[in-house]
Design a protein around this nucleic acid. Structure first.
Length: 966
RNA sequence: GCUGAAGUGGUGGAAUUGGUAGACACGUUGGACUUAAAAUCCAAUGUCCAUUAGGACGUACGGGUUCAAGUCCCGUCUUCAGUACCA
């Protein structure tokens, strides 16, 4: 009986589904273990062999943990809101929900055929109202919270209101907008309700603000920084411009320090932590205030202006020879003198024209303009010229810098270009060629009270003196910006928000979810409103608490991106029906908390986003596997939301993912044929030398393991190749190969369906692991799969021959036991280290050895199945069953390693001369050093090697090596 | 530029604490079986020299430490990924 993998795999997949084999328990005496994959976006293209790599790895680990006696939660779901379904909807009119449903069916079929041990009873889909109800709920909680910097945690906004009522905001330490003005308790109570709401919005953890956003005209939406690559949209590579819009934002900046500190508590790779650290971008320094010297004019007295800058080098304050403001800085128009006005305005116009992309592409060109104004040095009181320049970014720090040309290369280049003096404040350093940016091994000079001090001391002293003058203080800056949370899209979570007189109001929890309305078309409106602007029923009835027709609503949606103008809505017309928010939430909303939803095992999950019992039991994800492309998006936003939820007592963990592994990308091995230029002749790979040929991608399925092209298949592939002439070498046409990203246009995409059909899911699983280390990028080449497929056939033959089962109760031999136990040890170590590729080799070695040993002993072959079961679960179940077991192998204890079977009595010593191994010698392990030396020195090959010389030294490491020197 | 990871046969890769480099596969070559093919099985396979015995070289490059270095140290180069006028 041979190995019929198709039948076997279908049989066990059905068995697992029918018996709910992998259903996790929320009450169990076993310890818990939570293994999670980054859930997929169900795209129309389906899975290619690169997608399941991480799923296979996590599945092996999940199955291993079950064998190790854990109660394993290994769920799966779909991140089902997203752009492709919407774009498809725009093109075809098909509702995104329908496309999504179809794609999910394909995904599910493809995932099922690979034999994953997912607990599908807990599936989530971010686009389901029963799910996004809770995404909306979390949004409301963020709105109802502020960040208290005294207790360093989020607190209910009601506490803040109570303080405002009691003492105003002067004593409050909270994360808020920059433009908050101070007020007293009396002021607060005298404010109108709208005014109070406007102020509170500056404190809330999600807030509405006029922000400069990355607007992508082609996609008709705002993009987050991590959705932009080189100034173009990540999806579709469209140009992105800066635009001011009223948008929901998330005050993630309040969590910058905790997001940074938390990295030390989690088991992630260094490169990933480093990405997040860079993204958060903490820099420690000082804030310094410079007074602008009022211009001497004949007319009215000038008001005094101050420029605040952030610097990481307050120690270099005596090196300041000019100041630079971003062209967009608000002070520019106020301080520019009459004489410089024309030049400054021309410069501002010129920079405004340049897109973000141009500015990024062209950092070499130095440009700027002098404002004519001067600031006063805080210590020397010397006048310092104030310039503007686009190398200073409006969005970072205060949008202004104190320029120290001797210590900063950008300041240096700017000073050189505009002939500004470059004073040297470093002792014994030559700055005639470039700035000296190092902090190490240098003393400050020409700096009054800082002279002779090193970086550390000078910094401390400078800050101390600035504080005395009330012109500065120590300060920490973060690069991390608040995250824009509005998207002008249809296929996303609607906000549970309506507007009264322009102020956003939350809909009470009991009325959620606010379900996405139907629209005729999925495009923005002619007025430039988001697609929800086309919904006819999209107003909130505050009396009956339901969504009603817009006809009943007297307020109007504004033209600006979904917010609502507070203009002239007369109270007499106010019938309690208001417009709903027109934006939807971004893709990362639903994915920032989905891991908690899986914890809930109740059929009716509508009590809460997850019940307290479930949250307490599962805590957080023990192992998370997914792509590194989410380093600064999903993985940062999730951490932010979890910290927030912890603060507000909704969950009890500070971090969502304890251990995280990034699987490497699987690349395609493209195949090329070579057409001679100007002909229809195709030359085999070996014949192209010196010829002018054009390489053309061939579909990889036409090429066999020996790089030979199936010419007929290629000719029939496309009409243009029908009459092609092929010049062969040695009777065959050989293709060229190159490793590229898997993509349709390169015809190198391999579909797992075809692999499962031809070799089986177990072969696919083993081969994906066998390719190389999990975290490494590696090329796929279907040809190699015959290796692991052959292994499975050999494994099968170890148990079954033409007469059926050949396993018996014979006593295992010493060799049998040795093979089994070294395999147990190696595989267990490998799984713990996520070194799955080496386990597959170990299995091959074990099966090769047991086959050679003609092992038929059940005492060996039964535990072997438990070892292989996480990797190749179908064949393991089948053979396990044929050995007479009636239940699934999935929870059988992992075999226990017994070192006594590996104890050797002798060692085949490598005998080296001057470090070069010359021969080996089998010697008993209980020999002493002297005895070993005697045996080795007496050996004829040793005598031959030495040619009569006397060795200077003999190194003997018992059990390891012998090295003879001399 | 900065940060992180890496560089080993024709290919994917292995080498766990410094101790026999190239495990395990793919491919290639030769052989068995077969009318033939497929499948299967056996043998060889880092490079070079040598009929054999054996020898020289060899883990990106140049140095160093050590009885012994793919592994540790110093310097250089290359590739990949992330990030970038961040004050």
């Amino acid at each position: 009986m041979s190995y019929h993998f198709n039948e076997i795999e279908a049989k066990w997949q059905k068995y697992w589904a029918d018996n709910q084999t992998f259903k996790a328990e929320n009450n169990s005496a076993k310890p818990k273990y939570y293994v999670l994959d980054m859930f997929p976006y169900p795209s129309g293209a389906g899975l290619h062999v690169g997608h399941p790599l991480g799923y296979i790895a996590s599945d092996i680990y999940a199955r291993y943990k079950r064998h190790k006696g854990f109660n394993v939660l290994h769920p799966q779901g779909y991140d089902s809101f997203g752009l492709p379904a919407e774009q498809y909807a725009i093109q075809t009119g098909q509702h995104p929900a329908i496309t999504t449903e179809t794609n999910i069916k394909t995904y599910r079929r493809q995932l099922d055929q690979i034999g994953f041990s997912f607990d599908w009873s807990r599936e989530v889909r971010t686009s389901n109202p029963e799910y996004y109800k809770w995404t909306q709920w979390i949004f409301i909680q963020l709105f109802e919270s502020y960040y208290c910097t005294d207790s360093n945690m989020a607190r209910p906004i009601s506490e803040l209101i109570a303080v405002f009522e009691a003492e105003g905001n002067t004593q409050i330490n909270a994360a808020c907008d920059d433009d908050v003005e101070s007020f007293t308790a009396e002021d607060w109570t005298s404010y109108s309700s709208e005014e109070q709401q406007r102020i509170l919005l500056k404190y809330r953890l999600t807030y509405l603000a006029e922000t400069e956003v990355n607007w992508c005209p082609a996609l008709g939406t705002v993009l987050a920084n991590d959705e932009i690559v080189n100034g173009l949209s990540e999806r579709g590579s469209h140009p992105v411009i800066r635009k001011k819009m009223t948008q929901w934002s998330m005050r993630i900046s309040a969590y910058a320090e905790r997001l940074l500190q938390g990295l030390d508590t989690i088991d992630w790779t260094d490169s990933l932590k480093e990405s997040q650290r860079n993204w958060i971008g903490k820099s420690v320094g000082a804030s310094v205030t410079f007074n602008v010297i009022p211009a001497v004019t004949s007319s009215a007295v000038e008001t005094s202006h101050k420029i605040e800058v952030f610097t990481t080098r307050p120690d270099t304050i005596y090196g300041v020879s000019f100041m630079t403001l971003a062209p967009e800085h608000e002070l520019v128009s106020k301080i520019t003198t009459e004489a410089q006005k024309a030049e400054v305005e021309a410069y501002i116009q010129a920079t405004a024209k340049r897109s973000e992309r141009d500015r990024m592409a062209d950092v070499k060109t130095i440009s700027g303009a002098f404002t004519g104004a001067y600031a006063e040095h805080p210590f020397s009181k010397e006048p310092i010229p104030i310039w503007i320049g686009d190398y200073v970014l409006a969005g970072y720090g205060t949008g202004a810098v104190m320029s120290v040309p001797c210590g900063d290369q950008r300041d240096y280049d700017f000073a050189k270009h505009f002939n500004i003096p470059i004073p040297n404040i470093f002792e014994g350093v030559d700055i005639s060629e470039e700035a000296f940016a190092s902090k190490e091994n240098v003393k400050i000079a020409n700096s009054d009270f800082l002279n002779g001090l090193n970086y550390k001391k000078a910094t401390k002293t400078a800050i101390y003196e600035l504080e005395k003058l009330k012109q500065g203080e120590g300060k920490t800056n973060y690069r991390l910006r608040d995250a824009v949370f509005s998207r002008q899209r249809y296929w996303g979570e609607p906000f549970p928000v309506y507007y009264v007189n322009g102020m956003p109001q939350m809909i009470a929890q009991e009325h959620l979810p606010i379900v996405l309305p139907e629209v005729e078309k999925y495009l923005p409106t002619e007025e430039g409103e988001p697609p929800l602007g086309r919904a006819t029923h999209w107003s909130w009835d505050t009396k009956n608490n339901k969504v009603v027709s817009n006809d009943l609503c007297h307020s109007e949606h504004s033209e600006e991106s979904g917010s609502v103008t507070s203009s002239a809505v007369e109270t007499s017309l106010d019938n309690g029906i208001y417009p709903l928010e027109l934006n939807t939430m971004p893709g990362w909303a639903g994915s920032s908390w989905y891991f908690f939803r899986y914890m809930e095992d109740l059929a009716d999950r509508d009590e809460a986003f997850a019940t307290e019992d479930a949250l307490n039991y599962w805590e957080n994800v023990d192992l998370y596997i997914g792509g590194s492309e989410h380093a600064t998006g999903h993985l940062l936003y999730s951490r932010f939301w979890v910290k927030f939820m912890k603060d507000r007592g909704f969950v009890n963990v500070e971090e969502p993912f304890k251990k995280l592994i990034n699987q490497g990308m699987i690349l395609g091995t493209s195949a090329f044929v070579y057409r001679e230029e100007g002909t229809n002749r195709f030359l085999s790979k070996g014949l192209i030398e010196g010829k002018r040929v054009q390489p053309i991608h061939s579909d990889v399925s036409f090429v066999n393991a020996s790089e030979e092209l199936d010419i007929e298949a290629f000719k029939n592939w496309r009409v243009e190749f029908k009459d092609a002439e092929f010049i062969l070498e040695d009777g065959v046409y050989k293709v060229g190969r190159d490793v590229e990203k898997m993509s349709k246009s390169k015809y190198n995409v391999v579909n797992p369906d075809a692999i499962c059909e031809q070799y089986g899911a177990d072969s696919l699983r083993l081969y994906e692991m066998f390719l190389g280390p999990l975290e490494q990028a590696k090329p796929w080449n279907t040809a190699g799969i015959t290796g692991v497929h052959g292994f499975l056939k050999k494994l099968w033959k170890l148990y079954i021959d033409d007469n059926g089962l050949k396993v018996d109760d014979s006593e295992p031999t010493k060799d049998n036991l040795k093979t089994l136990h070294k395999t147990i040890k190696k595989v267990e170590d490998d799984i713990e280290n996520f070194s799955f590729n080496t386990s597959v080799s170990t299995f091959m070695i074990a099966v090769n050895e047991l086959t050679a040993q003609k092992c038929t002993s059940k005492a060996i072959l039964e535990p072997l199945l438990a070892l292989i079961s996480p990797y190749a679960p179908h064949i393991a179940e089948e053979l396990w069953n044929r050995l007479g077991n009636e239940t699934s192998i999935s929870t059988t204890p992992f075999p226990t390693f017994d070192a006594s079977h590996l104890v050797e009595s002798s060692k085949n010593y490598p005998i080296s001369f001057n470090g070069k191994m010359r021969f080996t010698l089998e010697l008993p392990l209980d020999m002493t050093k002297d005895e070993i030396e005697k045996a080795v020195m007496a050996h004829e090959k040793t005598i031959a090697q030495l040619e009569g010389r006397t060795p200077k030294k003999v190194i003997i490491v018992p059990g390891k090596i012998v090295n003879i020197v001399g």
